[in-house]
Nucleic acid binder design. Structure first.
Lengths: 134, 134
DNA sequence: AAAAACCGTGGAGTCCGCTCCATTGTCAAG
DNA sequence: CTTGACAATGGAGCGGACTCCACGGTTTTT
């Protein structure tokens, strides 16, 4: 199939697919061309794109996705290995969540303090400048 | 004071301070130069940098930080206005947290399913390829 | 036959927040 | 008097994931 079909079937834009190709996430052999030089993508490529979407949905970057794809190619994508990688990703997600929650806590404290301390038209809100009380 | 002093006092690198200057977050007048062309930063600039650090710590981007700084300049950084902006930021943080938690849930479900279904040396872990069950 | 829609390639641009580099100039210590 | 640490400037590079553009060729539709 041509890139347009790949695009509609995966929901990825042509540009994105071409970008993935440049990045080495998918590859096309020299033979897989039509006489007019159009690329003829295989069913495997389509499935690979779905796999990429799935891996990305777990929060992996493209580079990490590439690593996982290579595990598949090498037939080393055992459940053990994959669960290991994915668990690490979960830990990073948890870390990010904690970070965001800390920021949120900080900001909410600031708001509370502000509303306890300042008349609403205070000219320069101390939230922006004062560390100590806030 | 010179940029080095600014740097040690704020903990920001020289490069970062110069970058902030390029971005218009801090400014220096033509007069504030020593005879040798070195920049002589004022106490206000130092405080402005602390303000920038503080605003950034609330999760604002540099562009948003610039907006807030301009509110200060225009004496429109009232508590009302600031709390409004900051509350919006809290909502965005909450949205990001929810998003991450959803990803985490998805991944953990995958792991659980995998461990229920697959012998540990299954060659291609279905987590990477199968949407339906996982 | 002409216009619209597709295909290819290569490369530039975007957002974000720096960081690093090269080059040149200045100044203080040994 | 040299070495090293600082300063200024302009611009490149990075990581991440695209998106868009220009240019040309092909195919389909009207």
């Amino acid at each position: 199939m041509l890139i347009g079909e790949l695009s509609t079937k995966t929901g990825l834009s042509r540009d994105t697919i071409r970008f993935y190709e440049k990045q080495g996430l998918i590859a096309i052999g020299r033979k897989e061309r039509r006489f007019n030089n159009y690329k003829e993508y295989s069913q495997e490529t389509l499935e690979r794109l779905f796999t990429i979407k799935r891996i990305k949905s777990f929060g992996f970057t493209l580079n990490e996705t590439l690593e996982l794809l290579e595990l598949i190619t090498l037939k080393e994508a055992t459940c053990d290995a994959v669960v290991e990688k994915v668990s690490q990703k979960v830990m990073m997600i948890e870390a990010k969540i904690k970070e965001l929650e800390e920021v949120k806590r900080l900001v909410l404290t600031g708001i509370t303090n502000c509303q306890n301390c300042c008349p609403p038209q205070t000219e320069i809100c101390p939230m922006l400048t004062t560390d100590t009380i806030f």
